[in-house]
């Protein structure tokens, strides 16, 4: 009798029905519809004719796409290592019970709860020529002010600074959690051996959290590949597209120029890239942890 609820029963599916309806309508169907759109010539006046992989060919041949792709790769290659290294440093520094450390942890994480519009506003007010905090500091130091937001190279760098500032909380927290998992007796043994702090770090701490380092790296790659708001609001991709990321390319093609088929094709390409990274993440996170619990 008590086993009855374990028996398969159509009635039980009622519980999942509300979510499944939303899932089917707002996720599954749009996914297929996007793929369908990406295979058709579509404009404002509705779906047109089937063009096969024509849209994909148009995207891949578009110099603006290639530039956006390169910008995104450069951005990921610079921001992710910074986030991982800085996050790890903060975790090591703040892995203690004192009130000061707890306060600093809260402070470094607090920026992640702000919206991208606030983050970019803050950093624009730091970087804007003439009125920003940076120009003021440069002036005080007697340096020639740099126009960070509209100089090629510096603009993507500024977007990166704002991004690291915004996103540093999550890596730090994940590293802190991993540090907490390291068994204390490893450190006791090291203390008995009078091991130097550097040796403890390189022989015990880092090897013990190697898996988390991998995991954080992949999570950040997935996240930073989707850069959009910061670039859109701080530099609008400029100057001359040097800070335009992939997602902004999709936005411009799909929602500014309304070339829907091409935009859909670009978005499926991005999906493919992210899917590969997500697969790596899955493999890393399901691999056996190296620290015995």
């Amino acid at each position: 009798m008590a086993e009855s609820y374990r028996r398969s029963h159509w009635g039980h599916a009622v519980f999942v029905l509300p979510y499944l309806t939303i899932f089917a309508l707002l996720l599954a169907f749009p996914l297929f519809w996007s793929v369908w759109l990406s295979l058709h010539k579509v404009d404002l006046f509705g779906p047109g004719r089937f063009v096969g992989l024509g849209n994909y060919a148009r995207v891949l041949a578009d110099p603006v796409f290639l530039q956006a792709f390169r910008n995104t790769v450069v951005f990921v290659a610079l921001s992710v290592p910074t986030l991982v290294a800085l996050g790890l440093f903060l975790a090591l520094a703040l892995n203690r019970t004192t009130r000061a450390a707890s306060f600093l942890r809260g402070l470094f994480f607090s920026s992640s709860v702000l919206s991208v519009a606030i983050v970019t506003l803050i950093w624009r007010f730091v970087f804007i020529p003439g009125e920003g905090l940076m120009p003021l500091i440069f002036e005080q130091l007697g340096l020639q002010p740099i126009n960070f937001l509209s100089t090629a190279g510096w603009s993507l760098f500024s977007v990166g600074v704002a991004t690291v500032w915004w996103c540093i909380g999550l890596p730090m927290m994940l590293f802190l959690a991993a540090l907490q998992q390291i068994p204390g007796d490893l450190y006791e043994a090291a203390a008995l051996d009078n091991a130097s702090p550097w040796r403890v770090l390189t022989r015990i701490t880092l090897p013990s959290i190697a898996r988390t380092v991998m995991l954080v790296t992949v999570i950040q790659i997935v996240m930073q590949f989707q850069l959009f708001g910061q670039a859109h609001l701080m530099t609008n991709g400029g100057p001359s597209g040097t800070s335009r990321p992939l997602v902004m390319y999709i936005y411009e093609v799909g929602f500014v120029r309304w070339d829907v088929g091409k935009g859909a094709a670009a978005s499926e390409l991005l999906f493919l890239i992210i899917l590969c990274a997500a697969m790596v993440q899955y493999v890393v996170s399901t691999r056996k942890p190296e620290v015995a619990e």
Partner: peptide, 17 residues
Amino acid sequence: FGLAVPEQAVIIARHQM
């Protein structure tokens, strides 16, 4: 599998719907 689908992959179709 829905966890792996980023917003960008569906946003154009959603906007149309």
